[in-house]
């Protein structure tokens, strides 16, 4: 599930019309308002010293953006900042320890990954109903699955050409390379978890299944996980069928490394080039296909796929992680080389 707002006709949601700041009482947390009010701004509270706001004072619910089985995304107004934010709320699992742990860790991991492609988080807490929530930037744009559908359906004027998508895909790979350097494996990369903005942004959404590697496995500022007490046990299957690597599908938790994300990137690149998903059919057929496929060539599904990209896909989709392409950056480099050599 993602914090998504899409306008179907215009495809991209436009920036909301300019709104004047609310004239209702507002105040930043625990601060002292000591500047002179700007004449153009609305009146500020009479008091110049304010304490922390409670939940309802700070957030105003504007609507619901998405529902999931465990969590929902709400659109809220963050009053002190006069901005709209997405609020992810864990529901229907008020006392499920593992669900709450995963939720908090998602917020922490997302909050510590400081990269333009990772949606920044603002606040983590418990609302008055006792539900866990965290707030994050409300991102708008077109999901990659929709962009791919436009291409495969042969839309007359797709939002993104193949070349534009390849360029964004390279950015996506570099964002993953950054996460991998910090010892984080996303584990649920798929087109519906990638958002493309209208102004060149690429966002990787939904870090709820992320795996944090040990500090020694991180190459740069390891994430502070503070959750060593709980780890995924062997035999657990986490991810999305059709995009998860064979070792993920088999629940071989210790074999799931950054190369599992490389596989998922390979599956998405395959879909971009072949104009159809790598694994198709029912869940049973996709499961079998995922386990039986050792490297895959988009050229076998669609003519005209450049040889270099075809080989790149094949290398990223090897079944054995040891034989698989080693990094997300290697995919980015190969795509960049292709784009710089072509028309």
């Amino acid at each position: 599930m993602v914090a998504v707002a899409e306008e179907r006709d215009a495809r991209f949601e436009r920036e909301p019309r300019v709104r004047l700041p609310s004239t209702e009482t507002w105040a930043p947390f625990g601060s002292t308002l000591d500047e002179e009010p700007d004449a153009a701004e609305p009146a500020r509270p009479a008091t110049d010293s304010v304490g922390p706001l409670d939940f309802h004072e700070r957030y105003e619910l504007l609507g619901t953006l998405a529902y999931g089985s465990m969590a929902e995304i709400r659109l809220c107004k963050d009053r002190p900042f006069a901005r709209e934010v997405a609020m992810k709320v864990l529901r229907n699992a008020p006392s499920a320890r593992s669900a709450r742990w995963r939720f908090v860790r998602e917020a922490r991991v997302q909050g510590q990954l400081s990269h333009p492609a990772v949606v920044p988080t603002y606040d983590l807490g418990i609302d008055p109903s006792g539900d866990l929530y965290f707030t994050m930037k409300w991102v708008r744009g077109l999901r990659l699955d929709r962009a791919l559908a436009e291409l495969s359906e042969g839309a007359e004027r797709p939002a993104f050409s193949e070349r534009q998508l390849l360029s964004r895909f390279s950015q996506l790979c570099l964002a993953l390379e950054y996460a991998h350097c910090r010892g984080v494996v996303h584990r649920d990369l798929k087109p519906s978890n990638i958002m493309l903005g209208e102004f060149g942004e690429v966002y990787v959404l939904d870090w709820g299944l992320a795996k944090v590697l040990t500090e020694s496995q991180a190459r740069y500022e390891p994430i502070d996980d503070a959750s060593g007490a709980m780890r995924t046990s062997d035999g657990s299957v986490l991810g999305t069928i059709g995009y998860m690597a064979p070792e993920q599908l088999q629940g071989e938790v210790d074999r799931v490394t950054t190369r599992a994300d490389v596989y998922s990137l390979g599956a998405m690149l395959f879909e971009l080039l072949a104009r159809e998903p790598l694994h198709r059919g029912s869940a049973a057929i996709q499961a079998l296909s995922s386990l039986k496929t050792d490297g895959a060539s988009p050229r076998e599904r669609r003519e005209g796929v450049p040889e270099g990209l075809d080989e790149l896909c094949f290398a990223a989709l090897r079944a054995d992680p040891e034989q698989r392409l080693e990094s997300a950056k290697a995919i980015a480099d190969a795509i960049d080389a292709h784009l710089s050599s072509g028309p």
Partner: peptide, 18 residues
């Protein structure tokens, strides 16, 4: 080899049960 409620297109989180 594997199994459980593997939905197509949606995220699954099937914990092992020892």
């Amino acid at each position: 080899v594997t199994g459980g409620e593997l939905g197509t297109g949606s995220t699954v989180a099937l914990e092992a049960d020892a």
